[in-house]
Amino acid sequence: MLLAVRDLTVALPIGGRLVPIVESVSFTLGAREILGIVGESGSGKSVTSLAIMGLIDVPGARISGSVRFRGRELVGLAPRAYRALRGREIAMIFQDPMTAFTPVYTVGRQIDEQIRAHQKISRSDARARTVRLLGDMGVPDPERVAGRYPHQLSGGLRQRAMIAMALSCNPALLIADEPTTALDVTVQAQILDLLRGLRRDYGSSVLLITHDMGVVAETCDRTLVLYSGLVAERGPTGALFAQPGHPYTAALLDSIPPLHGPRPARLPSIPGSPPAPAGRPAGCPFAPRCAYVHDSCAVRPPLVACGEQDVACVLPAEGRPLPPRFVAEMSA
């Protein structure tokens, strides 16, 4: 197992007390696998990824649980050892490639910098590798692009450069935090295509963080659904989308307007909005918005197996799992 996260809890100080933003999140990621972490804003998906990267530097933050990467425990790892890992074995790309590059240096220089931070290699050799990487990422005229400043490139090119930088040291794990959210839909399709190709060409595993169920469906082998800092459901993407086990997953999928088939007169929507971390209910966090809420939801449900998935809901155990999802046929 490349990455095994167990009971990861991240608590940040808010208003003088420690509030758990992410609670008891567990999942595993195998070699050459793409795992999607989906959730709405405030679900804790970005915090989870930053905790794995060791990039949570809020004073007073507390991280507990276990993150094992290639058998090595990362929670509590010494800063120097973490630094040697970051960028070399675990790399990360971010949502907005415009603000994620330092504006005052050329893109090539920033990629060279990462290569030279981890390997003893000459400037010109590093640049040669940068240009080759940019070319591999489908950047036209990579030599010229390497000499440009971030603001001089289009959004798609910037994100390709960002991915080139992340892959520059052949990391075993790539964490992509909303990598296509700032991009146009036709460019998004290109970048997702690129990410899917990485495991073939580079043997990388990818942890894809997104709010977009469509992106997950088209990209990920397995999926983890977060709601209000807790795992709602996890399992193989195909099974999870065909027969979601958690009412939240089902409702989330239903509320997406379909692009094909008949148009619903009204979109099935979820009433209300997710609780803030400090005001999370003691029982199931989704209970106040759930159509199936009943007495036993007052106790926080553990993850239980339901079909091919694990679901944090009492319904499967009570013998009345959700029905399979109706999916309109797509016109080819």
């Binding site: 630094r83 960028g87 990360m92 971010f94 907005d96 330092t102 910098e113 931070a117």
Partner: peptide, 26 residues
Amino acid sequence: SEDFMRTARAKGLSPMRVLLVHGLRT
């Protein structure tokens, strides 16, 4: 708190390099 400073840290650069090379100039 800028995004690019987080990127620089994610690259595995030392805190001093992040501060001087990426932070100071901007």
